[in-house]
Amino acid sequence: MDVGTTLPGVGHDLVAFAQHAEGLGLESLWHGDHLIPVNPFLDSTLVHATVAAVTTKIKLGFGVMVLPLRQPAWTAKQIATLQHLSGDRVLLGVGSGGEAHGEAAWHAVDVPFAERGKRTDAILEVLPGLVRGEKTLLHGKEIALSPGATMPPVLVGGGGKPALRRAARFGDHWYPAFTTPHAIGKALAELEELAASYGRPRPGVTVGVTVALGDVPTSVIDQRVKGMTDYGLPEEFARQTIITGTPAQAAERFAAFAEAGVDRIVAMPFTEDRFRQTELIAEAVFDGRDSVAAARPPGGRQADGGLATVVL
């Protein structure tokens, strides 16, 4: 199982953080996307263009790109450009936009909030062809963007039935967040059945999990839980989804997700010690492969200063 982490939403240390995570051997870096989000963060495409320029191996994930806020042709052009800049490292998480962020962004771009699901599906219909530079029918006329690029894997965000249907129809992965291994296990049978109805194999599963490792004050955890309940999660369930404790304890929680059928975890730390949290996450991944010492090459670090690639 692969493990990645989220980039800081704002700040001048994005480059240092990205290089730090790549040096630790994490599989991917993720950034949110919204025009007017609840918590401010920088534009996802510009952040990933910056990260692509200062890293060489780590994958670049959208967590998730809100497609219906965007025009499909420009979206495809940006995705294709990122594929060229990064050497095909993009992981295209997509979504229709949650209610928690409100409707201000939708008014700003003159898109009806109620039509976001239909528009998401319509964009996903044409996006692969546009990214690849193929002739694609758009608004009644064929266009072809150039240069084309490899279409990145599509990860459909969301935990509800519309997201499951969309993942079954369009996705390479289903990408829920704030969930448990038990809930994932229950949903996979439905996902497989839906995918079969579209003549497709069941998509893989990427899960976003909230993480606060080490000695974290209870008040900080409580504040995070409150924020999650604002997204509509019941308080008890929200507490169940947060991964706390030592790296060894986190490794056990990661393993439970793997046993439930999860292929990738996106760890989402929320404390201020982001660099340290990333180190603890990497240690948890190494613990999942017996120990940090066993996973590292002789001498502890490779010649380029990075640890060995981390996968569970």
Score class of each variant (00 low, 15 high):
A255F: 03
R264F: 10
P72V: 00
K59S: 07
I123Y: 02
A308F: 00
H84L: 08
I143H: 00
A18W: 10
S146Q: 13
M228I: 15
H12V: 14
G87V: 00
L24F: 12
D13E: 11
V111E: 05
L24I: 11
G32S: 12
Q223A: 14
G140V: 05
M1K: 00
E125D: 15
D230Y: 15
Q78N: 12
D110G: 06
A100W: 14
R276Y: 12
L7S: 11
T75V: 06
L91T: 03
V311M: 08
G63P: 01
D304A: 02
T206L: 09
A80M: 04
A258S: 10
M151L: 01
V47N: 07
V220P: 02
L24G: 12
V10R: 14
V311A: 11
P128D: 07
G185T: 03
R70H: 04
T81E: 13
Y231L: 15
A122M: 08
T229S: 13
G300H: 00
H48T: 04
V3N: 10
G9C: 01
P181T: 02
G245D: 12
R116M: 02
V109G: 00
E236K: 15
G158W: 07
H101F: 07
P128Q: 08
G245S: 11
V285I: 14
M268A: 11
A183T: 10
L60K: 09
V216K: 08
A196E: 12
A212C: 03
V216L: 06
A76S: 04
P40E: 03
R276C: 11
Q302N: 06
K161G: 05
A282W: 10
S96W: 08
V111K: 05
T6P: 06
T6N: 14
D43S: 01
V310Q: 15
K77R: 15
E236F: 14
G227Q: 11
A294D: 07
A168S: 13
A284F: 04
P72I: 01
G61L: 03
A195T: 07
R239P: 13
H173F: 15
A52N: 10
E283Q: 15
T210V: 11
I79E: 02
K186M: 04
P153K: 02
L24P: 09
A295S: 15
S197R: 12
A293S: 03
V51G: 05
V262H: 02
L69G: 00
L280F: 07
G23K: 09
I143M: 05
V266I: 14
R200C: 09
H12C: 08
G204T: 10
F286H: 13
K135V: 10
T150I: 03
P147F: 04
G133T: 12
A284N: 06
L24M: 07
K186Q: 10
S219P: 00
Q71H: 09
G63E: 02
L85N: 08
G300W: 00
F41L: 02
T206I: 12
A196T: 06
V109A: 01
I79V: 15
K186S: 08
P128N: 06
V15H: 00
G97H: 00
K57F: 05
A122H: 07
P162I: 05
R70Q: 10
Y175Q: 11
F17C: 06
G306L: 10
A238G: 13
G102M: 07
W30R: 09
A255G: 01
R274H: 15
L138F: 13
P8W: 02
E283Y: 03
T241D: 09
R264S: 13
T150C: 00
V64M: 02
D172R: 03
L82F: 13
I243M: 08
D33R: 01
F178G: 05
